[in-house]
């Protein structure tokens, strides 16, 4: 197929009651069945709309706030689909009790749709294994994929666990999990994995997958790490389809799912108000690398290193998500501006058309190691609205803006070619079709 229909579901997960004592496996299954009752209805709706595949979120079946011990009743032994040919719907007891895999498999089979879900895997280990936990087993945050016959075709153990996931173990090596379909080659990873090289970049750059399946439980952080913003940018930067299904829990800043293609979002959902779930369905190219809009190569530093730097204004420091940026205020209605930090210089050309007097914008640069919820090296160029006219608020989260820009061009002297172009509009909206990336590394407004 040249094209296929993808679905993602942002699920408002029903959480178990917080407990220090593990519940029985019957009570654990009761809770998981409540979530799967909702997923069942959604899977039927997606299939009725012609979807070939549906992605559901990380923690979408058992929720969160577990210890290692309280999670255990929710886990099942998930076999390696590379080694076994298994349709749990037909033979659920083959590898021990597997009621969750059985139900997911049957939903896939009965609705003739690929189903992607996130559940927990347990694997006994030998005490002679120096890494074997004291309780004698590993437990993994796991994505599973069932094909339209209900067969288990992929299993992925999350590698880059988020800091609050002490209930899980990570695999010794990153797993590079792919599978082929009549609508392209797929890869899979989970949530925090997207910020790291392995397995995320390897799947795209070396294994040449067409679409990434991405269950997540993403806590939004403005101005740069809101789910819809960063995930759509990653799909554009990597030139790959990304099916991102977020858990919906506004109290934890979790919302924002989308069907993202290399040329922009095809459908997205962001709802910080209600506690409702949302199904998204959209058509994608099965092989985006041979679609007409595919960008074959971008040299992200070409323009920025070729031009003579623009004048620098009085710089000042500001914090974005614990990182100290160097900022420069946009002092006039239009102009050219450069701001540098260490090896990174960021250039901006802009023209405001409706400047609001009570709003201040700044150009910022950051070149350094981020060391808070994980350790990863960033080089960031950003044009942003400051929270108030006080420059000390530049970099603080903002959701509403009124100043209009008629034109912008942003570029930087990046040391890496892995650069993700983010544009976020007032009200936390994406801007598909309203900006473009040039092959010389400029991010410019479309008109």
């Amino acid at each position: 197929l040249d094209k296929y229909v993808a679905a993602v579901y942002e699920h408002s997960v029903i959480l178990p009651e917080t407990t220090q004592k593990p519940v029985s496996s019957e009570d654990a299954l009761k809770l998981m069945n409540k979530n799967m009752d909702i997923l069942e209805e959604v899977i039927k709706r997606a299939a009725a709309q012609g979807a070939h595949i549906i992605v559901t979120p990380e923690d979408g079946i058992y929720g969160f706030f577990f210890t290692r011990e309280t999670l255990y009743p929710y886990l099942e032994d998930i076999p390696d689909p590379q080694e076994v040919n298994w349709i749990p719907c037909n033979d659920s007891q083959r590898f021990g009790p597997a009621p969750v895999q059985e139900r997911l498999s049957c939903l896939a089979r009965e609705n003739a749709i690929y189903v992607v879900a996130n559940i927990g895997d347990k694997k006994p280990c030998n005490p002679t294994d120096p890494k074997c936990p004291n309780d004698g087993h590993y437990q993994y945050n796991t994505n599973v994929v069932f094909d339209s016959d209900g067969k288990l075709v992929a299993r992925y153990h999350k590698f880059n666990l988020f800091m609050s996931e002490a209930q899980f173990d990570f695999p010794k090596e990153p797993e590079v999990v792919t599978f082929n379909t009549s609508f392209g080659k797929f890869g899979v990873f989970t949530c925090f994995d997207i910020l790291f090289h392995d397995p995320a970049v390897t799947l795209v750059s070396e294994l040449k997958v067409d679409t990434i399946l991405f269950p997540t439980a993403w806590m939004n952080v403005l101005p740069h790490l809101t789910a819809i913003e960063f995930h759509s940018a990653w799909a554009m930067g990597m030139q790959v389809n990304l099916l991102s299904s977020n858990t919906h829990k506004t109290g934890m800043n979790m919302t924002g799912s989308g069907i993202y293609a290399p040329d922009g979002s095809q459908a997205y959902h962001y709802d910080a108000e209600s506690e409702n779930g949302q199904l998204l369905v959209a058509e994608l190219h099965s092989h985006p690398s041979i679609s007409p809009t595919y960008l074959h190569s971008v040299n992200w530093s070409l323009y920025a290193t070729a031009i003579k730097p623009f004048p620098e204004n009085n710089n000042f420091k500001g914090i974005i998500f614990f990182d100290e940026f160097t900022f420069s205020k946009l002092n006039s209605q239009a102009g050219n501006l450069t701001v540098c930090q260490k090896d990174l210089c960021c250039h901006l050309s802009y023209r405001m058309t409706e400047q609001q007097e009570d709003e201040v914008y700044a150009l910022g640069a950051f070149d350094g190691l981020h060391v808070v919820e994980g350790e990863y090296y960033l080089q960031i160029c950003t044009l942003l609205k400051c929270r108030t006219t006080d420059l000390q608020t530049c970099g603080e989260p903002v959701t509403i803006a009124h100043t209009r820009f008629g034109y912008f061009s942003l570029s930087g002297t990046f040391s890496t070619n892995y650069v993700f172009p983010e544009v976020l509009l007032s009200g936390v909206h994406l801007a598909p079709g309203e900006f473009q990336v040039l092959s010389d590394g400029q991010l410019i407004s479309q008109n």
């Binding site: 666990l161 800091m163 940018a233 960021c346 609205k385 990046f414 040391s415 993700f420 509009l425 007032s426």
Partner: peptide
């Protein structure tokens, strides 16, 4: 121009080669 005013326009670069080695131990409790 854009349909709504801009909150942020960003080039978010990840320089993977400069990441520190991965810790042997798993993540700490938040």
């Amino acid at each position: 121009g854009t349909t709504k005013p801009i909150l942020t326009v960003t080039l978010f670069g990840r320089w993977y080669e400069s990441d520190p080695p991965r810790p042997e131990k798993g993540p700490a409790q938040l």
